Computed example of a mutant assay.
Amino acid sequence: MKITADDVPALERGVALLGSGGGGDTRTGATLLRHRLPATVTPVADLPPDANVLPVGVVGATAVFTEKLPGGDEVPTAIAAMERWTGVHADALISIEVGGLNGLMPLVSAHELGLSVVDADLSGRGLPRLDQLSVATAGRGLAPAVVAEPSGQVLVLATGSDTTIERTARAFLASSSGWAMLVLPPIPAAELPGCAVLDTISGALALGRRVLALGESPDADRLAEAVDGDVLATGRVLEVSRRLGPGEHGRPGFGRGSVTLIDHRDGSLLRIEMENEYLLALRDGRPVASTPDVLTVVDRRTAVPIACDTIRGGVEVAVLRLPAAPFWTDPRHLPVIAPRAYGIDTEPVLP
Rank of each mutant, 00 (worst) to 15 (best):
R34V: 06
G139P: 03
I94S: 01
T77G: 11
S20A: 15
M82A: 08
R27P: 00
V117L: 06
R125I: 06
S116G: 14
D131M: 10
A5G: 12
G100K: 08
T66R: 14
A120Y: 00
G139M: 07
R140P: 01
S109I: 01
H35L: 15
T31E: 15
L32P: 05
V75C: 12
E97M: 08
L69E: 08
P70I: 11
L37M: 12
G100T: 08
R125T: 08
A136C: 06
G23E: 05
A90Y: 07
D119E: 07
N102S: 11
G99D: 04
G21T: 10
S123P: 04
G19F: 07
D46G: 11
M105P: 00
E83R: 10
D6R: 15
G100V: 08
G29H: 10
V8L: 11
G124V: 00
V135P: 00
L33R: 04
A39I: 09
S95W: 01
L113M: 13
G19D: 11
A30R: 10
I3A: 08
A92L: 13
V135M: 13
A110V: 03
T4V: 14
E12S: 15
A16P: 09
L122A: 02
T28Y: 13
E83K: 09
P70L: 10
H89V: 14
P70K: 12
L107C: 07
A51D: 03
A143F: 02
V15K: 07
H111T: 14
L122F: 02
L32S: 07
A120V: 05
E97Y: 10
L17T: 04
A16W: 07
G126D: 06
R125F: 04
A78K: 10
V41N: 06
L127M: 14
G23D: 05
P144D: 09
D73L: 13
A138W: 01
G60D: 05
A45W: 10
G29P: 07
A45V: 14
T28V: 15
T86D: 12
L104H: 05
R140L: 14
G21P: 07
V64L: 15
A81L: 12
E12K: 14
A78Q: 08
G22F: 03
A63M: 13
A136I: 04
A10V: 04
V117A: 06
I94P: 00
P128M: 11
P76A: 07
L122H: 02
L47H: 04
L69N: 05
D119I: 05
S123M: 15
L33T: 04
P106T: 02
G124S: 01
D7P: 05
G23A: 07
R36E: 15
P43E: 13
A16C: 11
P144E: 06
L93F: 11
L47T: 03
A30P: 11
S95Q: 01
A81C: 10
R36C: 13
G139V: 06
Q132Y: 03
L130V: 03
P9N: 03
V53W: 13
S20L: 01
P48Y: 01
T66W: 03
V64S: 09
V117C: 14
P144L: 10
D121H: 01
P144C: 07
P48V: 02
D131G: 05
D50Y: 00
A61F: 14
V58R: 06
L107Y: 06
L47C: 09
E112Y: 04
R140K: 09
V117D: 02
V146G: 05
P43K: 12
L142W: 04
H111L: 03
L54P: 00
T28W: 13
L101S: 07
